[in-house]
Design a protein around this nucleic acid. Sequence first.
DNA 1: ATGCCTCGTGAGAGCGCTCCCAACCAGGGG
DNA 2: CCCCTGGTTGGGAGCGCTCTCACGAGGCAT
Lengths: 343, 343
Amino acid sequence: MSVPSHSGSRPTLEDVAAKAGVSRATASRVLNASPRVSPEAHAAVTAAVRALGYQPNQAARALVTRRTGAVAVVFSEPEPKIFDDPHFAWLIRSAARSLADADAQMVLLLVHSPEDLARAERFLAGGHVDGALVFAPHKGDRLPAVARGLSLPVVYAGRPWGALRGLHLVDHDNEGGGVLATEHLISSGRRRIGTVTGPLDEHSAVDRLAGWRAATGASDDDAALLTEDGGFTRDGGRRAMAALLERVPDLDAVFVASDLMAAGALDALRDAGRRVPQDVAVVGFDDHPMIAPHTAPPLTSVRQDTGNQVKHMVTQLLRLLRGEPIRARREVLPTVLVRRDSA
Amino acid sequence: MSVPSHSGSRPTLEDVAAKAGVSRATASRVLNASPRVSPEAHAAVTAAVRALGYQPNQAARALVTRRTGAVAVVFSEPEPKIFDDPHFAWLIRSAARSLADADAQMVLLLVHSPEDLARAERFLAGGHVDGALVFAPHKGDRLPAVARGLSLPVVYAGRPWGALRGLHLVDHDNEGGGVLATEHLISSGRRRIGTVTGPLDEHSAVDRLAGWRAATGASDDDAALLTEDGGFTRDGGRRAMAALLERVPDLDAVFVASDLMAAGALDALRDAGRRVPQDVAVVGFDDHPMIAPHTAPPLTSVRQDTGNQVKHMVTQLLRLLRGEPIRARREVLPTVLVRRDSA
DNA sequence: ATGCCTCGTGAGAGCGCTCCCAACCAGGGG
DNA sequence: CCCCTGGTTGGGAGCGCTCTCACGAGGCAT
């Protein structure tokens, strides 16, 4: 039964080769754009591919090349967070675009629970993907440790907790951004500058706070007084702002470590009857396109270019996959201040 | 060179079999939970798997089984939409959860442009996935036609445009929901009831409008007067509400076809100095957990259970994949009215 | 004319897995 | 005592592809 092509199923490379009158090897060369193929053979194979509607079998290809062409994008965050915070939508979108541009498939893994983690580990170890982009900012998250044991190329967003040796990551200059924001407030004459921080189990939150601290030169006592955790949520920002206002009535400026929290802070300020920026100046962080330009008043904010960050992560991962020596294991992207009306 | 296991690379089934002292076939049987394996062989293989840290090679498995264990989730929407509208975050999250529960991998495809469409087609045709969940509500979208030519099991969210023959889909009872909302307004004594619709190139928007029309029994003239397109965006909802208010000053109720638009409509009503619900009663649609309970006043809304819809889509797709006869090609999920304070 | 290199090509060996088929080893009935 | 049955096992083919290797044909220098 050496039937060359059973009409029912998808055509194989064998069928293409037969139709083009060349060997399977030559057909494969054409498909993989090998240089050493005669123009005639190339034309014949191309025509056969088109005529047959041939599509390479990815599983067969992956089996021999040991490459799947897919990349996992892993978010390790509590479930509500990932889906309230518009920042994540932005990250997912950026990842989708960057990976599509690189012709890599994006496999999305959302890790909320220990079971999810076990599932993700199994998946990542299973050879389904060539590498992974990991978003796991929280202290105590087991994902980085798990990923490390996997011998899978991984690039992190921001600094994960724990040992950084040998990790590849793309971070933003969070501390520099905090300095930028705070110095802007100082140079516009503000004297009593508070800050609403993110959860301090995330490096980004810690670093932004450090920037504020460095720029204000606050004493330990002042820092304790002028700092309030807003948990990177809108409600948290509102509550933190209200608390700050109560504790420090003469506050005339605040650096809020995310735009989402800043939106909440603006609500709190409005409720308290403070005018922005006349009574209290506000600087946010992220320059989120869906938030910063649309608050009342529009928010002065530290821009972190999320799309760019993800693009760098993809670039770094692709380099890793190609086995190229990587320029910098840890990339730190700059942040800039975008001035609007709130400060 | 018949070296059984080269220590550098991942262990293969061959290695497991050797270590367990059985044949590759028996080892395979254990892994695939075949019944006809002796307890001893089973134990030996299980132990070997654990000892070696064996992970099946998915590519090899996919090559022979012709199954990848992955499902594509395709969103065909203009880029801004997918990422402003919290509804999409909700959909993605639901899909991630349902597919994870089904032990299927989720490959996310975002289609914004013709190039994206071509890429998606190539991907879907390439045998990377066993099936697809498609969200392509807009009239004129080429995706459903493309998908149809692919001989890939597909389940749609809502009714796509074009011929429905042979399509599998899970929809909500949008018209019924529109009736529910409007009758609630009527029964609470409202007489002049307008509606803010979604873009009428989506069936869901058309159906909700039809529900309003059926319940009000509006004449063509009245329908034209009392209807305004809000485009399923917050700003659109605000503008539509403002337009309606201007055109029909004695309006005392409005059915807004999405919560996001309803939030905008509430802004417009506030701007116009109308009290809700005293002057104008408002009913939304979606009962989105991030919006409806948090507006001022909290929104009475028609609940459509998105998580449930996606779960049904996954169930239907899995059935399709197993080759089981499918109960209903077109499932229509009920909607219920959730009363809060806005109507 | 002879050697050598380059170029295009085909044969064939796998990649790691599943699954068909035949072989095997009991034990029980004829 | 032999055959048959039923459960368990291993051999081996084959999924569709890539890639190494060897080979023939031509071009150039010797």
